[in-house]
Structures are given as C-alpha cells and as structure tokens.
Computed example of a mutant assay.
Amino acid sequence: MKALAAIVLAAGKGTRMKSERAKVTFPLAGKAMVQRVVDTALKLKASKIAVIVGWKKESVKISLNPDPSLEFIEQKEQLGTGHAVMVATESFKDFEGDVLILCGDVPLLSAETVDKLWTAHKEKGAAATVLTAIVDDAGRYGRMLRDDKGNIKGIVEYKDATQEERKIQEFNTGIYCYDSKKLFSALSKVTNDNQQKEYYLTDTLEILYNAGEKVESVVLEDIMEVSGVNSQEQLAELENIYYDRTRKHWLNNGVMIHNPATVLIGDDVVIGQDAEIGAGVQLFGDSCIGRECIIGPNCLIQNSALGVGSVLFGHNIIIESELQEHSIIDYGIKVIRNNSDE
C-alpha cells in the first residue's frame, strides 16, 4: 500500500475574524477547526502530518492533541499557498508516497471524501488530483481550466482570470492529492509573477500538465464540506450545520429527540437505540448513552456513561461519571466524578 502523508495549511491570521486569535484554533462543536482537519488525515492513517504554522504558532500547536505523526513547520512569511507548501520541502525530501494538501479552516471536509480523492488518484496513476465543485456562480474561487479533450491543464485565480474564464462553473476547492516527489519538483518551478505577487500552489497543475503528467479531478458532491471560515458569522453557520447533521444522524438511527434545534451532540458521543433526549440537552466528549435511556430537558452530560434504561428527570449535570443500568436521577441533581450532590 502506498504511503500517505498530509500537509495542513494553518499559518494564516484570518483578519476578517476580527480577533488576535489564530483562525484555525477557533472551535467548531467543541474542537479546534484544525483538530478536525488533522482528525480527517488520521482517519486515513496518514503516517506523516505536517502542520504549517505562522501566526500565533504556539497557540496552534497546543490546540492539537499530541500524536506521533504530527510535526510543525513554520512559514515565517505568508507568501501564498505555494510558498506554504514549499517550506515543507526539506521535511519531505525522503518521503516516498502521496501527500494530501488540506486547509486548516475547512473543518467539515469528511474522511470519506478525502479517501475518494486519494483512491481516484491512485487508480488513475495521477501526478496530481484536485477536488473540484460545480456551481452556477463560483464567486471568487479559482476556475478549473481544461483542454479540448477535457483534461485539466491548470487553475486560474479569480483575480487573474479573464471575464470569459470567470464564467466557468467548475472551481478549485483547495484540496489536493499529489505524488510527493512530483509536487515538490513542480513547486521548485513556481514563480510569483501574478497580480498578488504570491507563489500559487495552483500553478503546479499547469507545470505538471505541460510536463506531460496526468492531472485528474474528483467532483465534490456536497459543497458544504469545503465551506471555509472567514468570519465569526460563518463559523457560527457551519457549527449549526454540523450539529444539525449530527442530530439527523441519530434521529435516523432510532433515537428520539425533542425540539431537535435546541439539542447539541458532540461527534464522539454514542447513543443507544430507543433513547429519548429532551429539549435543551447537551451531550459532549466521550459519552455513551445506553439503550432506552430517558434524558429530561436541559441536562449537560460530558465524558460519562449512562447504563441501559437510566432516567434523568431534567436539569441534571453529569460529568466524568458512570451511571449503572436503570439509574434514576431526580430533578437538578449533579453527578461529578461519580459523586452526587444529593
């Protein structure tokens, strides 16, 4: 099996967030955005994950759970996406395999989609494979350029595109899979001869195409997966989408949820069939809700396990605790580290 690595772009400041905080450290549903991106790479068993850091680099580092596959590489100047990947050249000089390019501020990208990208890349023997999407109006995204045979020949950034090119509906999502050696060879030929005076990663596709290499694409089915975060408002919108998808998952797997829009469920939570969740409930961390449990309104449960058939009357707080089967917890009772305040 071919080795897989990932480069996570996480060096930007994110000025539109109106904050001094590094953008990728903002939490979405209880996890830093960049942690969610790293988790995606870990699910694909990437053996090496290089996180490119810059602005508030130490805060980015501590926002991530320790893992032996992680390494941090500093981009001291932000000179474009191509430059961000260039700073990893030395780290990857001995790596033989494929490398994913992921964005630290795109937290909803699923492991299933990235696996589909990598699978297509391997099956087609491509030097580079880009995740694209098709919409009526691609806004300010870079447009995919194809030759008369339909092959990708490059990407043009919106600011550098002609009016005709801006009419193209297929756009670049900024997610790629490359043959590592061919990526860094192409990067060595990239220049900053453009309006932004930046080194564009997108230029590598044209370089590879002109060298006779195969450049492929996978079209994204769910465009929400590549929604980036550029403001606090956008972050809140994505968090709502995330929680809504989680709720729908459990609603379609035998769980009753009252007034679902008020309920928050973390992605590490497991809920048994025929459980009933009241309005305003929050379930976080490594929590397991047993079958046929009834959780009354406005309860908070974090890193806890509820045995089969347990009942919480409502307004309860259960933290780092384990309730035996058929436990009954009266209104307002707190159980913290298995100690009750009754």
Rank of each mutant, 00 (worst) to 15 (best):
L117G: 13
C293N: 11
K61T: 13
L42G: 00
V226I: 15
K182I: 08
T173P: 08
R245M: 06
F171L: 09
D341F: 13
Y141C: 12
I101K: 00
T191V: 13
S59E: 15
D148M: 04
E325C: 05
V87P: 01
K57N: 08
D94G: 08
P297C: 06
E320W: 01
I317C: 08
E320C: 09
E170C: 06
Y158W: 15
K124T: 10
L9P: 02
E239R: 09
L264D: 05
V106L: 15
D203A: 07
I328H: 08
D222S: 12
V156A: 12
E237N: 13
P68I: 10
E342L: 11
A41E: 01
I333D: 01
M17A: 03
I155M: 14
S321G: 04
D244F: 11
R245A: 07
A11Y: 11
I336V: 15
E165N: 13
Q196C: 07
A3R: 14
D179Y: 08
E90G: 13
G296I: 03
I265A: 00
K334D: 09
F284H: 00
V229P: 02
A138V: 09
G82Y: 14
G285I: 02
R16Q: 09
L312Y: 09
F26N: 02
A138T: 10
L108T: 11
K189E: 15
T40W: 00
N210F: 03
N339S: 10
H83R: 08
L108E: 14
A120P: 01
M86D: 11
G150K: 05
Y242P: 00
P66K: 06
F92L: 12
Y158S: 12
Y176G: 07
K57M: 09
E239Y: 03
E276A: 08
S310P: 05
E96C: 04
V99I: 10
N339M: 07
E237I: 13
Q273D: 11
E237L: 11
H249M: 07
G174I: 08
I62A: 09
W250R: 02
T132H: 02
A305H: 09
Q196I: 12
A5I: 04
Y199T: 09
N303K: 00
L187F: 03
N151C: 05
K61Q: 12
A128D: 04
A261Q: 12
P260A: 07
D39G: 03
A275L: 01
T113V: 08
V263I: 04
P107I: 00
I241W: 12
L4T: 05
W118K: 15
M224D: 15
E123L: 12
V218E: 10
F26C: 00
V135K: 12
V34L: 02
S321I: 02
N338G: 07
K189G: 04
E123T: 05
V37A: 07
G266S: 02
Q78S: 15
V60M: 08
S304Q: 11
S310D: 04
L283T: 00
E292N: 14
V263F: 03
Q196F: 15
I277P: 01
K48D: 06
I152E: 12
K182L: 12
H326A: 10
Y209T: 06
K57S: 15
D136V: 01
T202H: 09
K153P: 05
E96V: 02
A126P: 12
N338F: 01
Y178S: 07
Y199W: 13
H121V: 02
W55M: 01
I101Q: 01
Q234S: 13
Q196M: 15
I319M: 06
S321Y: 03
I319F: 14
K56T: 04
L251D: 05
S19I: 10
D137C: 10
